[in-house]
Computed example of a mutant assay.
Amino acid sequence: MKKKSRTKEEEKFCAWGYKFEQYLLSDQPNSKPVIERPVIENEEFSLFYNASLGSHNLLYGAQIDGVITTNCEVSNPSKESNVESNLDYLRNNEYVELKTNRHIENYRQDRNFRKFKLLRCWCQCYLANLKGLLVGFRNQNGVVQRLQWFDTQDIVEYCQVSEITQILTRLFK
């Protein structure tokens, strides 16, 4: 969504999402998030990928929310590290996307979450080879009250199974 066309309400939801990321992510592994500092919405971490689609070579970038430091043997990159050690660190860890969503209170909201938001997030996660998606479900005041993890490899099935289950439930009542 373009920033210029956002409504005031959409801007508020985006700000809540950035603050959610700040509460859950730290600048360095094994350190606590710094939640007191103001959120910088333009701050981002991007990775670039190459792929082939038939005879076409693709180069694309993806904004990444967080690194899951799964490989303890690879040391954290430092400011003095060379490019190869930084790349080694990045190649040997996994990545995660964070999103917020309002609490789901009815079938229509659940269907729309799965059909639109979750599938769109799957595309983002799949193309960037992210391990998964962490969704914070918030109330109408922006307070996250529940977290749910979605593995990238399971999102499509999760979305389809839900739709079929809901239809069957209605048919056999």
Rank of each mutant, 00 (worst) to 15 (best):
A62I: 05
L127Y: 07
N30P: 01
N86V: 14
R102T: 12
S81H: 00
L53D: 09
C123W: 10
K79E: 15
N139S: 06
E11Y: 13
A15F: 07
V161P: 02
K2Y: 14
R114I: 01
E36V: 00
L118H: 08
V67G: 03
S46H: 06
A15P: 02
Q160M: 08
L171V: 11
I68R: 00
M1D: 07
I64V: 03
N101W: 08
N57W: 06
N76A: 08
K19C: 00
A62N: 14
R108E: 15
G61N: 05
S52A: 10
K32M: 07
E97M: 04
G61Q: 04
E43S: 12
G54Y: 09
S78P: 08
Q140W: 06
N76K: 12
F45G: 04
F48P: 10
L90Q: 06
W149D: 03
V96H: 00
E105K: 14
W149P: 04
C14E: 12
E41G: 06
L90M: 09
N141R: 15
T70Y: 10
G136T: 06
G54M: 09
F45D: 06
N112W: 00
G54L: 12
D154L: 10
L53C: 11
V39I: 08
F45W: 15
K8I: 10
N50W: 05
V67Q: 02
E105H: 11
T7I: 07
Q166G: 14
G17M: 04
N92F: 03
P77R: 03
K3Q: 12
Q63R: 15
Y60G: 01
L47E: 02
L147G: 01
G66V: 06
V34S: 04
V74L: 04
Q124W: 10
G17D: 02
L98V: 12
R170G: 09
I40K: 05
N76W: 10
K4P: 00
I68N: 02
C121T: 03
E73A: 01
L171I: 13
N139D: 15
Q28P: 06
